Simulated assay, not measured.
Amino acid sequence: MRIGVDYRLANRHLGGMAVYLRNLIPLLKKIDSQNEYLLFSDNPSGRPGFKRHAWTIIWEHIWLQLCLPFLFWKEKINVAYFPNPPVSFFLTIPMVLTIPDVSFMYDLSMPGWTKGYLWIMYFLSAHKARTITTFSQNSSNDIVKFFKVELDKIYVTPLAPSNALSLQKTKREPQKEYILTVPGTFISRKNIEETILAFKHLPAILKNTYRLIVVGDPHGEGYEKIKDFVEVENMTEKVILAGRVSDHELSALYSRSKLFVCSSLYEGFGLPILEAMKCGVPVISYDNSSLPEVVGDVGILVKNVDELSRAMEEVLINEKLQVKLKSRGLKRASLYGWDKTAISFLTSLPKNAY
């Protein structure tokens, strides 16, 4: 089969779906000798900042609904793959659609009209697609709940940590000890305020020993709100907003950290947790959405900021617990790999596309 891939997200963004596509598609080309993968994008150069103006959003819909179907027809594509809604609604060939999560349905701050528009796009796309992939069982359940599709139409294809990340054996400097969190972005559901407050509530001896490093995009309203929050809480000397970092820098940050914390209110998978485990870092996470699926029984799950602060204290003062969580996390991370993700994805391809 000739499989056409909507590759726009890989060229435009630095986020999770770009990482997903850049890992998945090359592996599919390598291991799948039965199919040919052709990539299509309205921005093949990958120029940063492509989606900054209203006209580009209009052009995106024109390209998706009119230009892409023509290109698929011209290249004799048998199956279309879309890594995110919406799909090309005028296509008549079988489609595979990835719905990473439905976080917008839980976003209380999102305007009603925006949520309504997204629901329509997701609903129509989910019903247009022959099969759907998603990253966790929790997201699969949400897709069934909100978009009324059959469960047997959905395939769970878990993510995997980057091959560039690994445990680095570096000597820790006591005066530079830190706790790490990697929200990636500062949208409200990442709930960074509660990580900061949990850190602030630690006993003085721990708070004086450690810093909190936050890795995420240093742009936008959400980042500015967190920056102001840190100042209001008088934590500017203890909370470091590190911005974006390379895979090599991130691997070093994970490996040297004493503890990884995730206080997100909703995640479609929670990849940073798995990345931390791969780098040998004890993990504490909020117990919601897909996060328990990733953490399993090798990390500590908590319900609120008070439990988070107590768990942080417990791990930081207990070296035996640190060793146990580190060892279990490394074993769990080894269960995930991009080759396994690619093989899982292959099972979602329609078998009768011709």
Rank of each mutant, 00 (worst) to 15 (best):
M121D: 00
V96Q: 02
P111Y: 06
M105Y: 11
F146I: 04
E177H: 11
K115P: 02
T98E: 06
I187T: 10
P161G: 05
V182M: 05
K148V: 11
T131G: 04
D101Q: 01
Q168N: 11
M110S: 04
F104H: 07
F147Y: 15
L165T: 08
M105R: 13
P100G: 07
Y106F: 12
S140W: 00
Y178T: 04
D107A: 14
V182I: 11
V149P: 13
G116F: 08
I187H: 06
G112Y: 13
F123N: 10
Q175N: 12
Q175V: 06
I187N: 08
F146K: 01
M121Q: 14
F123V: 04
V156Q: 01
T157R: 09
T133I: 13
S109P: 03
A129H: 05
D142H: 04
K169Q: 13
R130T: 15
R172V: 03
Q168H: 07
Q137S: 10
K115M: 06
M95A: 10
T181I: 12
I187F: 04
A164W: 02
W119L: 09
M105D: 07
P183T: 07
M121I: 08
L118V: 02
A129K: 01
F135E: 11
K153N: 12
D152G: 04
F146W: 13
D142Q: 07
M121L: 15
N141F: 09
F186M: 04
L167H: 01
P161Y: 05
M105K: 13
I187C: 01
S125P: 10
M95L: 12
F186I: 00
L118C: 01
D152L: 09
S166D: 08
M121W: 02
L151N: 12
L97F: 03
L151K: 15
S188F: 13
L118R: 13
P100Y: 14
S103L: 05
V156S: 05
K148C: 14
E177I: 02
S166Y: 14
N138W: 10
P94E: 06
S162V: 10
D107E: 11
A126Q: 07
L124C: 11
Q168D: 03
R130V: 10
Q137V: 12
T185W: 11
L151I: 14
Y117I: 14
R130K: 14
F123T: 07
S139H: 00
D152E: 15
D101M: 02
T134V: 00
P174F: 09
Y117P: 08
S188P: 15
L118H: 09
N163L: 12
L118W: 07
D142K: 00
I120H: 07
Y117F: 15
V156N: 03
L108P: 02
R130D: 13
I154L: 01
R189C: 02
T98W: 09
W119P: 03
